[in-house]
Amino acid sequence: MHEQPVRAVPDEEHAQIAASTFRMLSDPTRVKILWALFQEESSVNALADIVGATPAAVSQHLAKLRLSGLVESRKEGTFAYYRAADQHVRRLLTETLSHAEHVTGAAEERDPHSY
């Protein structure tokens, strides 16, 4: 009946980590920031331009992403540069964005009079 073996329910620690990751990805600006950082390392000001937010807002989002371990930073003189830290999250984000494309594509194909 099942193509893959049924897996056990995750233990509490793993479920908490997964939920925390989803919380970090629950903000559209953080999704954009993280996606941009998977493309290349960047500064706060450059990220602000890319995602269409203020540098202050981007800085706050980066602080949360850094504390959660999804983003790393390095200093070069007085500048800080950020990069995505986790390739597992890249796969998760890629699948989620692919799903979003599927949902929006399916919505565009629906006949609005079919409801």
Rank of each mutant, 00 (worst) to 15 (best):
Q87S: 11
H102W: 10
H88G: 11
E108Q: 12
G52Q: 02
A15Q: 12
I17T: 05
D86N: 15
L25T: 05
G77Y: 05
T94P: 01
F38A: 04
A84G: 08
E41I: 07
A8F: 03
Q39I: 12
E109G: 03
H102S: 10
H113V: 12
S98M: 06
A53I: 11
E12S: 13
V51Y: 03
A56E: 07
L62I: 04
A18S: 09
H113A: 14
N45I: 11
S68D: 11
A56P: 01
T54L: 09
D111R: 06
M1H: 06
I33H: 03
T96D: 00
I17D: 00
Y115Q: 08
K75R: 15
E40V: 12
S26D: 14
H14V: 13
I33W: 00
S59N: 14
E101H: 12
I17L: 10
A80K: 14
V51E: 00
L92I: 13
A48D: 03
E12M: 11
L25Y: 06
H99Y: 11
K75V: 15
A46S: 14
T54M: 06
P5N: 04
A46N: 09
S43Y: 02
S26I: 05
A19M: 05
V103T: 07
I33Y: 01
R7F: 09
R7K: 14
E108L: 15
P10L: 11
H14G: 00
A46C: 09
H99R: 09
A48G: 06
G105S: 13
W35R: 13
T78D: 08
E101L: 15
N45T: 10
L97I: 12
L25G: 07
Q16S: 14
R30Y: 03
R30A: 13
L47V: 06
G105I: 09
H61K: 09
A15N: 01
S114E: 11
N45A: 12
W35P: 00
